[in-house]
C-alpha cells in the first residue's frame, strides 16, 4: 500500500509514527532517567562512598596483610593496582544487577508501566532497548566516579587505564541483559530475584579472580571464572590498567565473550518482552 492509495487518516498515522519508530528507545530511556531522579542521591552517594571504602579497605588495609606484591605471569604489581580494576568491574556488575532486576519486575508487574508504554507507538523491543540505554548511562556514571577515585589512590599506572571504564560497563551489560531477560520471564517474584543476588551475584564477585587471582582457586572451581563475565571484565581491566601479561588471543576472547553475552541477553529480553506484552 502506498501513501497515495491510503485513506487520509491512515496516511496521517504513518507520518505520526515515524518519530517513535526511530526514537522510541530514547523516549523510554528518558522516562527511566526521570524515574532514576528519585534515587540520584543514592547513586551518587554509593558512587563516591563505595570506591572510597573499598579502595581504602582492600588497597590499603588488606594490602598490608597480603604479600605486598602480587605476581602473575612474571609481572609483580602492588595489591592496590592488582585489585583496583576488579573493584571497578565489580561496581559496574553490581549496579547492573540492581538496575536490571527489581526495576524490570516493577515495570512488568508491580507497577506495570511497560504495559502503559506498550499502548503507545513504542514497541516492546524499544522498551527493552530504552532500559539498556538508561542503565548503560547509569553504570557509566558509577564507573566514572570509581575510576576517578582509582586515579586519586594512584591505582592506575598504565596510560590506557581509562579503557577499563569501557570493559567495566561491558561487564555490567553482559550479566545485566541476561538477568533482565530472566526477570522478564517471571510472572511472580517469590524470592527468585533475591536468590540470584545472594547465590549468583555475591559468589561471582568473590570467585571471579577479583580479590585474588583465579589460579589460586582449586582447579575444579576455576570454571566459575571462565563462565563469569566478571572474570573476563576484570582481566581485561588489568590488561589495560597495568599491562597484565596475557596472550592477545585471550584478551580477544574476553571482549568477544562479553559482547556475546550482552547481545544474547539483549535479544532474549526483547523476545520475552514482545511475547509478554502481546497477549
Amino acid at each position: 500500500m502506498t501513501a497515495t492509495e491510503m485513506r487520509p487518516d491512515a496516511a496521517h498515522a504513518l507520518i505520526a509514527a515515524r518519530a517513535p519508530r526511530r526514537w522510541g528507545a530514547w523516549y523510554v530511556a528518558e522516562h527511566r532517567f526521570r524515574g532514576m531522579k528519585a534515587y540520584t542521591q543514592t547513586v551518587i552517594a554509593t558512587g563516591i562512598g563505595s570506591p572510597l571504602m573499598y579502595l581504602f579497605a582492600m588497597g590499603v588495609g588488606l594490602a598490608s596483610l597480603v604479600d605486598a606484591n602480587v605476581e602473575q605471569n612474571g609481572l609483580a604489581v602492588s595489591y592496590l593496582v592488582f585489585v583496583a580494576p576488579a573493584l571497578l568491574a565489580m561496581a559496574a556488575f553490581e549496579a547492573a544487577a540492581e538496575e536490571f532486576s527489581y526495576p524490570i519486575m516493577l515495570g512488568f508487574k508491580w507497577n506495570p508501566i511497560f504495559t502503559g508504554m506498550g499502548a503507545s507507538p513504542v514497541t516492546p523491543g524499544q522498551i527493552i532497548d530504552g532500559q539498556v540505554i538508561a542503565v548503560t548511562v547509569r553504570i557509566a556514571v558509577t564507573s566514572g566516579l570509581y575510576y576517578l577515585f582509582m586515579l586519586l589512590f594512584g591505582a592506575v599506572p598504565g596510560e590506557f587505564g581509562w579503557v577499563s571504564l569501557g570493559s567495566a560497563v561491558l561487564t555490567g551489560l553482559a550479566f545485566g541483559t541476561l538477568l533482565m531477560a530472566y526477570v522478564a520471564t517471571l510472572e511472580n517474584d517469590s524470592g527468585q530475584i533475591a536468590m540470584v543476588m545472594r547465590f549468583l551475584v555475591l559468589p561471582l564477585t568473590l570467585f571471579s579472580g577479583t580479590v585474588f587471582p583465579l589460579t589460586q582457586l582449586p582447579w575444579f572451581l576455576q570454571w566459575i571464572g571462565w563462565l563469569s563475565p566478571l572474570w573476563h571484565g576484570t582481566e581485561l581491566g588489568r590488561v589495560v590498567s597495568y599491562g597484565h601479561p596475557e596472550p592477545a588471543w585471550l584478551s580477544i576472547v574476553h571482549v568477544a565473550y562479553l559482547l556475546l553475552l550482552t547481545v544474547v541477553g539483549w535479544m532474549l529480553a526483547r523476545r520475552v518482552a514482545a511475547r509478554r506484552l502481546n497477549r
Binding site: 487518516d9 491512515a10 496521517h12 498515522a13 509514527a17 522510541g24
Partner: peptide
Amino acid sequence: YGPEIRSQLGVVP
C-alpha cells in the same frame, strides 16, 4: 502497522 495505529489511539486500561 502497530506503532502507526497506536499513534492515533488513546488507551485507558
